[in-house]
């Protein structure tokens, strides 16, 4: 009973906060609602018995990705009147994207139901290795059966990261860098001198 109640609570909150994410006029509010949606999705994962995925969802999406979203969105200078003017202009495009997304969901769900894709059986019986914990099951799959796909995904991410750094990196010559090791290695006797200059002479530095 409590399972059903929790499922509907999380599901309704996920969809509801997802909807408010789109409807909220203030982008910062949108991001916060998005975070709530992530959270409830993690709750749904716990209910499905995938606690490892749930924790990763919170750590990666809520803990890192959404913080960066928030970071960027908070610094935006938003003109609300302009935003609303753009709404009418972009309305047809938005409808088109919505239709495409809906079609994808329907297609994906029916393909999954038909069992054409080997994602697991619709009744969820292929979920985990019996007797092993969640983490062990995922580890066995990722580092066993899907090792090469997993490594390939890692390499793609690495290439993307290197690409992003190369594209945005620029060599700056006008900055004065701090050499920490040099500073620490500096001793008082080489940094200071003790002199008694003649009157009116001054010292040469």
């Amino acid at each position: 009973m409590i399972h059903v109640f929790a499922f509907y609570l999380f599901a309704v909150l996920t969809i509801g906060s997802g909807a408010v994410t789109i409807l909220a006029r203030n982008p910062v509010h949108s991001v916060l609602w998005l975070i709530l949606a992530f959270f409830n999705a993690a709750g749904l994962m716990v209910l499905a018995g995938a606690e490892f995925i749930a924790m990763l969802l919170v750590i990666v999406y809520v803990g890192a990705v959404a913080v960066l979203f928030l970071f960027v969105v908070m610094m935006l200078d938003i003109d609300f009147a302009e935003l609303r003017a753009g709404f009418v202009k972009n309305f047809p495009l938005g409808i088109l994207i919505a239709i495409v997304l809906l079609a994808e969901i329907v297609l994906g769900l029916s393909a999954y139901r038909a069992g054409a894709l080997e994602l697991g059986t619709p009744d969820g019986s292929a979920a985990a290795i019996a007797g092993a914990s969640n983490i062990e099951s995922i580890g066995a799959l990722l580092y066993g059966r899907y090792l090469f796909l997993f490594e390939a995904a890692g390499i793609i991410l690495l290439v993307a990261m290197v690409g992003a750094i190369v594209l945005t990196h620029r060599e700056r010559t006008d900055t004065r860098d701090q050499d920490i090791a040099k500073q620490i290695a500096r001793r008082p006797d080489e940094a200071t001198i003790n002199t008694r200059p003649d009157i009116g002479k001054g010292i040469q530095l």
């Binding site: 910062v28 916060l32 975070i35 606690e51 490892f52 924790m55 990763l56 919170v58 750590i59 809520v62 803990g63 890192a64 913080v67 928030l70 970071f71 908070m74 914990s133 969640n134 983490i135």
Partner: peptide, 25 residues
């Protein structure tokens, strides 16, 4: 006594920043 205990701690501690960020904004 969950078997992802440490991950749970990591997940929760990563949420701590939200209070500060939201307060600041």
């Amino acid at each position: 006594d969950i078997n992802v205990g440490l991950l749970y701690v990591l997940a929760i501690s990563s949420l701590g920043v939200y209070g500060v960020v939201i307060a600041g904004w």
